[in-house]
């Protein structure tokens, strides 16, 4: 991650203690899907976006979920993030059965334990960069330390090289800067899971590389990162690649295995 001149000011590490304790023992997988299927409303009876997906993702992994358009990767991300609960099968994330949580409990969990990073950034144009980062704090339930959240948001922007852009509106930022603001927003409460949907899809290759490097850095700091992508350069950054095809897991390989497999295929 590049440091800006302003970042010489004292700043908290990205893992500053703003998060709630994890509810599952560290040894348990962070994500556990068992026979997850999804059929969209109005789709023909036999047509499913996901077909009995079963997989585990451990804490601290950096995983790329790849596949062609319509393979079910976005559906998988929505289920992992608790944005879509109309599915069959069992999904446990961070020790929680997503089917069993009430809407309020699920919302609280999303607010504090999941960080979303989207292809189109989804920043609110009427808010400054700093206020966009603080948006999850506004939605937080119960007592909150507004001063601490603000300090953390400022630190995050500084660490991400946006110290001088904290008052800028999204319309005044470049694509890479917008994505950094979105990443800062996702990190505000030090989530246990970062879910990234085509995070470099709207960026030029150089900026995309910077963002990928940032994810690797975050993963090195202990964040679990799941990236949905169809870009090879993104999947190369992951240590594990899950390939989806027609809603089913076609392959699930660790990078070292993939390398071996690639070498075997090469004459």
């Amino acid at each position: 991650m590049s440091e800006t001149p302003e970042s010489s000011a004292p700043s908290a590490p990205l893992s500053a203690p703003l998060s709630a304790p994890l509810s599952a023992p560290p040894s348990a997988p962070l994500i556990s899907l068992r026979g997850v299927s999804k059929r969209y409303r109005g789709a023909p009876e036999g047509e499913r976006a996901l077909k009995g997906v079963t997989l585990d993702i451990a804490r601290g992994e950096i995983v790329a979920v790849v596949g062609t358009s319509g393979s079910g990767k976005s559906t998988l991300l929505n289920i992992l993030g608790g944005l879509d609960r109309a599915f069959e099968g069992e999904a446990r994330v961070d020790g929680r059965d997503l089917h069993a949580l009430s809407d309020a409990a699920l919302s609280t969990w999303r607010n504090q334990r999941v960080g979303f990073i989207f292809q189109h950034f989804h920043l609110l144009d009427h808010l400054s960069a700093l206020d966009n980062v603080l948006l999850p704090a506004r939605l937080r339930r119960g007592a909150r330390d507004a001063g601490a959240a603000r300090a953390r948001a400022q630190d995050l922007l500084t660490r991400l090289g946006l110290h001088d852009k904290r008052d800028a509106l999204p319309t005044q930022l470049s694509g890479g800067q917008k994505q950094r603001v979105a990443i800062a927003r996702a990190l505000l409460f030090e989530p246990s899971l970062l879910l990234c949907d085509e995070p470099t899809g709207s960026l030029d290759s150089r900026t995309g590389e910077e963002i990928i490097a940032l994810f690797k850095e975050l993963n090195a700091e202990g964040y679990t990162v799941v990236m949905i992508t169809h870009e090879e350069r993104v999947s190369r950054a992951a240590r594990r690649v899950i390939r989806l095809e027609d809603g089913a897991v076609k392959s699930d390989q660790l990078k070292s295995e993939q390398l071996k497999s690639d070498q075997q295929e090469t004459p």
């Binding site: 944005l83 809407d103 979303f116 939605l139």
Partner: peptide, 16 residues
């Protein structure tokens, strides 16, 4: 509607 989706993703409940 996109903003509403974002607020949901960031932790807004139906009640919120």
């Amino acid at each position: 509607r996109r903003e509403i989706g974002l607020l949901r993703a960031l932790g807004a409940s139906e009640g919120d």
